[in-house]
Nucleic acid binder design. Structure first.
Lengths: 194, 194, 194, 194
DNA sequence: AATGAATGAGCGTTCATTCAT
DNA sequence: GATGAATGAACGCTCATTCAT
């Protein structure tokens, strides 16, 4: 399995650095190879093509992200608490990793439709997690079950995403994690929680 | 004034069609010119460069959009009603114009940082409009004035944008405009309206 | 005869200014038209094409130049004196007209082979004048008649031309006309004058 | 060092052929690549841009030229002899290489001011060599030391250059090398040698 | 005669990918 | 496995010239 070899992660980390530093359109394969300390051709022993680096990058980070959140909310009973932990973790991960924040909020979106569809495919796992929290919240009466789950999820993800993007665009001047309680309150209100 | 000459609008409309059909990176100037029924060089009598077409396109559409919404909400008293009219109009414009929806939700975002910053500059007028509705709603007691206006705006815009993007990504399979009441309700709840 | 109409000279003078100021490759027809105060299309009522402007420019200036020198040397007996008057006038004309100097020494030479051949055709009149001075000098015994007239002419023209070009390249920092006596002496020595 | 790799010289030689054959402005990079038997992109592994090909070409040829002349005149005592060897070698190199003669006398001069300045910078090494010969000639009493070294150099270089250009323009119909003794005599006379 | 909007051919350069070593 | 030199397709933009008014 190539994904477990050291150079695989090495190249992905190099890609995050290079894309964050130079922007997606200036992140040539040769630059990524140089940053990773390997030859250009070596990239193609681990990735099908340049697009595949980006997909794998997103997949890898998302996998870790989701696994962590799943652990985090595992023992919690209330949807409200689960939602809060998710929001806070989402904010914390990106606040702690400037490069990753730039890549996911700004650079990765500069890609073509096809690539974005693939990235959306990966994102679905996260969205499913949100759906589960919502559904469980409805079952327990925490969330108004008249609402459309999909719409609620779009509100939650849209708000979180927009909040992070605005923060990145404003050069991360303020404390993102500190916004978690307010965002949580807004979203919970929206859900019709009493 | 070049912006009032017929070819100016002709080229912008052609750009919307070509970009929606082929994607931003496959929207060569020659393709746009052909679609507009002018020579390649004519493009440059009306636009500084290819990037300028995109900026002008967004500016032009946003100008019409904002002017229309301003008229729409002019006589309305409640922030709730104003918000609803805005959401519905936002959805309706894009639902009525498939090409424009694809361009604004997917293609325009594939551009480099500089261009995105310019586009964000144009978007600010819309966001200001939202801010005004929120502020007025707070003054009247419709919206919980303890909330951060910026966060509320991010929730509103983030939710609307995410809703439209999801709809476009799902190949516009369902009725977007019909979602307006539910989205409106969600957002109003979020704002702490009683 | 178009050459006698005011706009003909107007355009040629504009071309000298524009080419000197912006360089040959940045001297677009539209710039020349603007400088001349006429419409782009008007240029083509007086000149076949852009190349024709340059040829006519050179022809016009050279005609005046030669006519003047012919008058100047008309009454003079010695080839030495004729040569001196020619050198001095050559230097003076270009020293007095910065733009013309830049155009003839630097910019006009940036043209393609065909155009340079045409320009050389015009230059031949000047070279013939030099040949005549040399031949008469040989007849009178002022110049060593064993020498090849063509080679002597190449020395004379080559030296004058190189001297002016070096002066232009050095930003005309020193007095070109003041060099005439020394250049004259050098060339006369070269001709074997005693 | 890229300059020692075979493809470096291969591309320069191809450039000489293509520029001589089609003229500078019709010497597209793709034509040069084809002539050199490499891909278009390969050019850019060895040269910064098209302009750089021309500069390197001139630099390379000038380097060989100067090195050869320096060896040639190393053991010679008289400035007269040194001057003759230089003139003859100058003529011989260009007479032996039609393409190079066309490129240096006609095509290379069609370039813009910036490029011409760079080329002049390279030419300075040659002009310095001439200056040295003149200075040494003055020390030894072979050349009239009242003369301005710069003017003498301009006469020497101007005459040689004009002679070669005239020969190229006349389609190289006569024997250029055979002119060396006469040109040498003319110049030596000019220098005031007895 | 004069205008100036419109035309459209033409090219230097980048960079993802390959493959011989 | 690892290398990195070589490949070659693809495109935004300029500007001399035309021609309807």
């Amino acid at each position: 399995m190539k994904k477990n070899k050291p150079k695989y992660k090495q190249i992905i980390d190099a890609a995050v650095v290079v894309i964050a530093e130079h922007g997606y359109h200036q992140a040539q394969v040769s630059k990524i190879a140089k940053q990773a300390g390997v030859a250009d051709g070596t990239i193609y022993l681990y990735f099908k093509n340049k697009e595949d680096i980006l997909i794998s990058l997103f997949q890898e980070k998302m996998r870790i992200f989701i696994e962590y959140i799943e652990e985090l909310i595992a023992g919690k009973q209330s949807a409200s608490e689960q939602l809060f932990l998710m929001i806070e973790h989402h904010f914390r991960v990106l606040a702690d990793n400037h490069n990753l924040a730039v890549v996911t909020q700004l650079e990765i979106r500069q890609t073509n439709k096809d690539l974005r569809l693939k990235i959306n495919g990966i994102l679905k796992e996260y969205l499913s997690l949100v759906d589960e929290i919502i559904s469980r919240g409805m079952e327990k009466g925490e969330i108004n079950s008249d609402l459309d789950v999909r719409l609620v999820r779009q509100m939650i993800f849209g708000t979180i995403d927009e909040t992070v993007t605005t923060w990145v665009m404003n050069e991360e001047k303020y404390d993102l994690v500190a916004l978690a309680p307010q965002v949580h309150k807004l979203l919970l209100n929206g859900c019709g929680a009493v």
